[in-house]
Nucleic acid binder design. Structure first.
Lengths: 253, 253
DNA sequence: CGACGGCTTGAGGTAAGTCAATCCACGTGG
DNA sequence: CCACGTGGATTGACTTACCTCAAGCCGTCG
């Protein structure tokens, strides 16, 4: 079973056996467990290490002067928390675990070597960063031009595709530890309104969500409602021959 | 007078004479002029060249199925349009000129060499991409947690700082070819509401905007209203000794 | 002169927010 | 085993920020 970091990057390119072994070694050297709600990185920090989520769920967020929180992204297994660490002086936002999360620590030095190499790993890391950019752009579209209902539909559908990428689900059911308050902070809505919209999605038999478990009952219609266009995820290999479960992400796009 | 690309990157690091010459040469080899409204890159494109804005203003945008447009970023001189070009298969959004714009073309090959080098230029390019990410995150905060008035204040103040970075203004006055309809598509508001909010900013003697010229009359209060925290721009050298005009961007932050 | 793009202003409508009560699932301790 | 507290979800009545529709203005250009 591949590690999620490798698995994610292999949506972009295929690694050699040696490359896979190297990535496996890197993430197994040092790991740390975080409790739900615990900060992995805090605004203003400068950690010597990069952090890769291996299991659980995390969020990027900012706290505003008035105490409000805006979640800018959810991080699923395989996602890098802080690509910036070896270039920028300090974090401009925080990252917190939303469920029990296992995180691999990779030294800035090792990361730098990976990135400045000529190989596929350097390319895959660039791909990851550029894809993060694209996901964030889509979030801006979400907030600017989709109403609450579409916005939540889009977010849920995107989570499904991203979970697929790293083999965290093979059907339409996924772990979903995100509370409605979190969802509100991510979508720019109030928890009450999120509740109403989720209720509506349930009433329409599009999703089922209970006990931190989300099932997409009607992916096709949900995708339609969300106005979901998968091109921004840049799953270049999505329609390759099926050689592992992660490739099934291609079925959704 | 330094070219804006160099100037922007020197907010992050100081280049050697040779590095500056190299960058100058790269952007002078091939250039192209675009008319207002003309597309520089279109969703689905795969250009062999990277594009750097040298003068004028451009925007990243997406068109939605229903014909609405969402502007995700404004590009000022010194900004790279398409860092993705040598990694991703195709553009997931478009870029258009908003005023007469001069753009330098740099071949993907040359770009790849710059990026995979060990020197300061590679680092500065990474810095640029990571800063784009940070600006986009701030846009999400804007849309999620600031009301129309604060949102527009924030956008205007950010433009002032970014113009400063590349020496496009030394006081509080800048070229502002962005129409209210554009501003509406960038902020997720309607043009009518943008008009009302600009009117309010004018009434409060915070800005003056006519003939495509914007003057920030009261930067201190505008910054306050916007809840502007400059850390996300990562102007690491902002408080260095003042050796060129661009460093005055540091005065605002 | 009229036409047109960009901006402004007003009246009325609606999506989403606010405030507040209630409910439910849980864990914890007496 | 029940009492209780707590975090999360739900529901309802009322408010508001922003939208829609529509008219009118102003400068520019053919």
């Amino acid at each position: 079973m591949a590690n999620p970091w490798t698995m994610k990057m292999e949506q972009f390119t295929r690694f050699s056996h040696e490359e896979r072994q190297m990535l496996d070694r890197l993430i197994s050297e040092r790991q740390r467990q975080y409790a739900p709600g615990e900060d992995i990185l805090r605004e203003g920090d400068h950690s010597p290490d990069c952090h890769v989520v291996l299991s659980g769920l995390a969020s990027r967020y900012k706290l505003l002067p008035n105490g409000e929180r805006q979640i800018m992204a959810f991080l699923v297994p395989g996602d890098l928390c802080d690509a910036e660490i070896f270039i920028l002086k300090e974090m401009d936002h925080s990252v917190a675990a939303m469920s029990p999360a296992r995180v691999a620590l990779i030294s800035g030095e090792q990361m730098k070597e990976l990135l400045s190499g000529q190989g596929r790993i350097a390319q895959a890391l660039w791909w990851g960063t550029l894809t993060d950019l694209a996901v964030l752009r889509e979030r801006v579209v979400d907030h600017g031009r989709r109403d609450a209902y579409e916005r939540i539909a889009h977010l849920l559908y995107e989570m499904l595709v991203r979970y697929r990428m790293v083999g965290m689900t093979t059907d339409e059911t996924l772990e979903f530890p995100i509370t409605q308050a979190d969802l509100a902070d991510a979508t720019g809505l109030t928890p009450m309104h999120v509740s109403r919209m989720l209720g509506k999605l349930r009433d329409e038999n599009l999703i089922s969500l209970k006990n931190k478990t989300l099932t997409i009952l009607d992916p096709e219609r949900l995708k339609e409602i969300a106005g979901f266009n998968p091109n921004y995820l840049h799953l270049d290999r999505a329609h390759d021959q099926r050689d592992n479960v992660a490739d099934r992400a291609g079925d959704l796009v």
